[in-house]
């Protein structure tokens, strides 16, 4: 039983990271209708930038510079790529995001190199035991940071003026425009927020697995989370992330050995497919009612 809980908890901690990436997707999709396939590459870019800056400056300054890079990326993306594509079909925007992901990968790796780099931001990794369950401080710290980030975002969207403007934009572009909210700037701010979320995810995964190209593939882990929770739901992304993280870990440990292992790659998709069969817009996604 202890073993079960150990697997469950390590799954949940991985799930938090999935939630973070999926949340980045959901934020941008809700605000601008772009299915931002480059979310994983944004994490990669953030990781690369942070490693690069850390070699020449202290941590806090490096984090600030990374933030600056993500902000420039966000504004550049919105004003150069997505402004001319306003009101195009969603699939075209999706393709543009795929193009963007090539761009980010190429630029990031051209500046900071393609080799795998270790990322150490000074969070200790000490294992300890609570009633027979092994945990380590690194995972817990990032679980805490992610929770704080989510809480901060909720506060930002509910209480601040900018946050309310962003929600208005997400709700109805035209109505938001008509009350004087600058649409493109609102989108850019959303991309900045998604960039921050990507940075946290990038740092967390990067310090675990090293910063390298494969970091951008965490987007693939986040996609089943995203559709399970509902593409435009932030709450859904969080809950589905935990659910998928826990279930894939449990499945790998308890079902995996019977079928040859490695089922972690597709198990989340199976879970998502089964749920979607009954709820076609995910657990919390906005249901689209079609009329002829």
């Amino acid at each position: 039983m202890t073993f079960f809980f150990e697997v469950l908890i390590s799954g949940l901690l991985v799930g938090v990271m999935y939630s973070l990436v999926a949340m980045g997707f959901a934020l941008i999709y809700k605000a601008s209708g772009v299915f931002n396939f480059a979310q994983g590459d944004m994490s990669l870019l953030a990781g690369l930038a942070l490693v690069g800056f850390l070699t020449v400056m202290p941590l806090w300054l490096a984090l600030l510079c990374t933030f600056a890079v993500m902000t420039i990326l966000a504004y550049g993306t919105v004003f150069i790529i997505f402004r001319p594509l306003v009101a195009r079909p969603p699939l075209i925007l999706f393709m543009a995001a795929i193009g963007l992901s090539f761009l980010i990968q190429g630029i990031g790796q051209a500046i900071w190199g393609t080799d795998a780099k270790g990322l150490n931001i000074g969070i200790p990794e000490i294992s300890f035991e609570i009633s027979g369950i092994y945990l380590n401080t690194f995972d817990l710290t990032f679980g805490g940071v992610a929770t704080a980030l989510v809480a901060g975002l909720v506060w930002f969207f509910q209480k601040t003026r900018t946050g309310r403007a962003l929600r208005a934009v997400a709700d109805d572009h035209e109505a938001a425009l008509s009350v004087g909210i600058p649409l493109l700037r609102a989108w850019a701010v959303t991309w900045v927020i998604a960039g921050i979320v990507a940075t946290v995810a990038g740092v967390a995964w990067g310090s675990r697995l090293g910063v390298q190209f494969s970091l951008s593939l965490i987007a693939l882990k986040a996609l089943p989370v995203l559709i399970l929770g509902g593409i435009d739901s932030i709450l859904g992304a969080i809950l589905a992330g935990l659910l998928i993280g826990a279930s894939e870990n449990l499945a790998e440990v308890f079902i995996g050995p019977y079928v040859g292992g490695g089922i972690q790659t597709f198990f989340p998709y199976l879970v998502a497919l089964i749920v979607l069969w009954f709820k076609p817009y995910g657990m919390f996604g906005k249901e689209i009612i079609e009329r002829v």
């Binding site: 790529i81 001319p84 594509l85 195009r88 075209i92 393709m95 543009a96 795929i98 193009g99 963007l100 992901s101 090539f102 761009l103 980010i104 990968q105 190429g106 630029i107 790796q109 051209a110």
Partner: peptide, 14 residues
């Protein structure tokens, strides 16, 4: 190559 490729895709879509 990745930069040019991605850039051209975006350019073409625009």
């Amino acid at each position: 190559e990745a930069i040019v490729f991605g850039g051209l895709i975006v350019f073409f879509l625009i």
